[in-house]
Amino acid sequence: MEKVLEVKDLSVQFKTYRGIVKALNGISFDVLKGEMLGLAGETGSGKSVTSQAIMRTLPENSKIAGGSVLFEGKDLLKLTEKDIEMVRGRSITAVFQDPHTYLNPVFRIGQQFKDILLNDPAISSIKDKKKREATINEKMTQSFRDVKMPSPERIIRSYPHELSGGMKQRVLIAMAFSLKPSLIIADEPTTALDVTIQAQVLRLMRELQKKYHTSVVLITHDLGVIAENCDRIAIMYAGRIVEFGDVKTVYAKPLHPYTQGLMRALPRADKDAQIESIGGTVPDLVNPPKGCTFHERCRNVMDVCKTSPPSPLFHEGRIVECHLYNEPLGGS
């Protein structure tokens, strides 16, 4: 299958008063055309940093320490600020976590939507003002129909505070899909919504994704959401991808001890089992532990884990980063 996005060995660091935070330490993954990829991990594992690095919206105190982000054959990290602006909003868009804060409170929805649509050269190149406005209006109405919003005309004239959270998230989704991008990065799109709306919103995204054959990177810490919606999953821990493979394969038999821990921590309806948590806390990324970053919390820790970091291995149809599956060293 055709790869839309290929992240290779990406490292990102933040300068802080405490020292350099190594937020991403050489992560590699790819997104195939028309698939939904789940990016899972705890808070601070680097999920959002990954999305910011891809879109080049990292804060000023950050530095891309290495790697490349190939998108449609171009390395996004090497583009000029002007060129990346052409990619953002047209080829790559985003759906964000909190719909309440991601819409500008002092402009009408229609006004904000219009500015996004003007990114499209096909629209902004229409010289006749009346015709352009008409095209924009038609496009907005169509987009709102896509996300099943009643009375699009009313929404266009509304201010964000006049809409409910679910409506606002639909507006954001409509905006994200409106220019038919090839990639959408959805950073915890349902976290701020209540559970019933969450399912609706995800179903909607799934439908639109199928309809327009868009690739989606779904960032979440909810493994259930990934199981229901995604094709493949990448599990992140302390700035690394520890396991990456098909959702079915990984869920059926998680290999990395961290993934196993996450699975045990899921509440289950079919078994009357206690929920287990993973002992310990996320390591400090200013001074990450030597060797494998997970070794302090790992059940299967070996001597080698404390000294040398594991490298990615192909094992049982997925990529996993763990010394357990490194036959010559861990096979004893």
């Binding site: 879109m55 919206t57 990346i84 602006e85 052409m86 990619v87 953002r88 909003g89 047209r90 868009t93 985003a94 964000f96 909190d98 804060t101 991601y102 819409l103 500008n104 409170p105 002092v106 402009f107 500015d115 996004i116 990114n119 954001l172 905006m175």
Partner: peptide, 26 residues
């Protein structure tokens, strides 16, 4: 530093529009 400015950036709006329209009015 507000989210809606991040949003405007992520949607590739020109810097001019982001600063003098979206940010300034607020």
């Amino acid at each position: 530093r507000q989210d809606y400015i991040t949003m405007a950036k992520a949607y590739g709006l020109p810097r001019r529009v982001i600063i003098y329209k979206y940010a300034l009015k607020n």
